[in-house]
Design a protein around this nucleic acid. Structure first.
Lengths: 118, 118
DNA sequence: CGGGATCCCACCGGATACTG
DNA sequence: CAGTATCCGGTGGGATCCCG
């Protein structure tokens, strides 16, 4: 291998590492991926519905995570003009592309439990 | 739907949430998944080789993460009786089952960059 | 109902120095 | 070479209370 092919390979490698950390940074934290998984399964949920399903999350945390997910264009927030006002959260089309990733995370997590118990 | 089917569904759901958090807890942190990805691509690496490839990680952090990954049976640590001693790290068979997950994380990360730039 | 404000602290992770 | 020891700042996240 010459220098050039080395550089091409390591550049490719760096891109993949960057993609990997991109993904994990976006979804890191105790609740974010559970929020996404819940919205993926249930479609649209209001703030309090999410809070109830997630069971244990502090409202501040839920609010903050939802904002970050909205910033990253994974979650859509819609304020309904009812009284009292309600707010609906759902995945964007882009957020829904996480289904494969989340599915694989669930699948691996289940297999890992079996493996560890052995 | 009656009560029983509700309970079955929510039990299934809880299992999936648990699997999801299991996976993410194991791989959370700034470096763990990059370590795994690097070992997945390169096979076997020594401590200093890993440190050089990861570029920027503190030895303490690398050491600690490797220990945790070993505890979770994802990474194998082998001490070679050379002088000076060398230590080789590689993925276990179980660790190698993460390839699908890591591949999907890379794939989604690449797509996400395209999406955000738009 | 849907959050924001405040307080608090454990722990993550970086920098540096040192050891067998 | 392969780590460990020590120090330290930032922050992730819980608890609690409050507001429109």
């Amino acid at each position: 291998m010459n220098k050039k092919s080395d550089q091409i390979i390591s550049e490719q490698c760096r891109q993949q590492i960057r993609a990997l950390t991109d993904t994990m940074e976006l979804l890191s934290g105790k609740w974010k991926i559970v929020i996404l998984g819940t919205l993926l399964r249930n479609g649209t949920l209001r703030f309090m519905e999410l809070k109830r399903v997630l069971d244990g999350i502090a409202p501040k945390k839920l609010s903050k995570d939802l904002q970050e997910l909205e910033l990253n264009q994974l979650v859509r927030r819609e304020v309904k003009d009812t009284k009292p006002i309600t707010v609906e959260y759902s995945l964007t089309d882009h957020g829904r592309t996480l289904d494969v990733f989340i599915g694989e995370a669930i699948h691996w997590g289940l297999e890992h439990r079996k493996e560890i118990i052995k």
